[in-house]
């Protein structure tokens, strides 16, 4: 499987493995998306869950896993959990029985608690500490006195060719210096995410990233077709894009 090591993190499409903690970390599944957009008049086949499950399964086989940490936005619907969400979240948790599953609350995860309760899982809100690491969704500020792994931002990068046509890739953002932050790519199967190179600071979703800025962060392309690629620092890339 494709992967790339960054200090103590092993990044793969689409999550992170922390050897020290025997933990797999994922973010932003947005299960139940299809049902939610149906309410808005868009009819999509229900393909997200089988594909996401497949990825998670494969990853578990590759690494030595004891804990599985989900960084929020497990489900999509802001309001009450839909049938699809009950169904798919429960199925997911049942598949992961035997592992220590931790779930950190994301801004979409309202009404998630009753679903988790069925499988005896507590919802960590707004963050979870494990070892020397902090795990959060990223939609609210959390103290940055230890290394942070977060989601929420759905980072992506758009590469232009000289015709102006562009191709998008999901990516991870890694801030090496203190405070250390790793922003995971979103697992959601629809779309790639937000092009972080063309986003202004105000347009960033996470208040922490807005405060600190992403200029010093490394952009790591994370793509199941293409693999992984460390492109370098945001600031440098922005210069290149001119």
């Amino acid at each position: 499987m494709q992967e790339l090591e960054f200090d103590d993190f092993i990044i793969f499409p689409y999550g992170v493995y922390i050897k020290e903690l025997s933990s797999l970390v994922f973010a932003d599944f947005h299960l139940g998306l299809e049902r939610a957009v149906e309410e808005e008049g868009l009819y999509l086949p229900y393909r997200q869950f089988p594909e996401i499950l497949e990825i998670v399964r494969k990853t578990i086989e590759v690494y030595d896993v004891r804990n599985i940490i989900l960084l929020g936005d497990i489900k999509h619907e802001f309001g009450k959990a839909s049938d699809q969400e009950w169904d798919e979240v429960l199925s997911l948790l049942r598949e992961l029985k035997g592992y220590n599953v931790k779930v950190v609350r994301g801004n979409h995860d309202n009404y998630l608690i009753p679903i988790l309760k069925r499988e005896g899982i507590e919802l960590d809100d707004p963050y979870l500490d494990l070892g020397n690491y902090r795990f959060a969704h990223g939609h609210v500020e959390v103290p940055l006195d230890r290394s942070l792994l977060m989601g929420h931002e759905h980072p992506a990068i758009s590469i232009r060719d000289d015709f102006g046509a562009s191709v998008s890739y999901k990516c991870a953002l890694y801030r090496r210096k203190e405070p250390r932050i790793l922003v995971l790519p979103a697992m959601v199967r629809l779309g790639y995410g937000k092009d972080i190179l063309s986003s202004s600071r105000e347009e960033l979703l996470s208040p922490m990233l807005r405060r600190i800025g992403i200029d010093d962060m490394e952009v790591i392309v994370v793509d199941e077709e293409v693999g992984l690629s460390d492109l370098g620092i945001v600031n440098d890339l922005r210069k290149l894009m001119r």
Partner: peptide
């Protein structure tokens, strides 16, 4: 050819 675009960019 997403691979090629990425390699070109690299």
């Amino acid at each position: 050819d997403r691979m090629k675009v990425l390699r070109d960019f690299e």
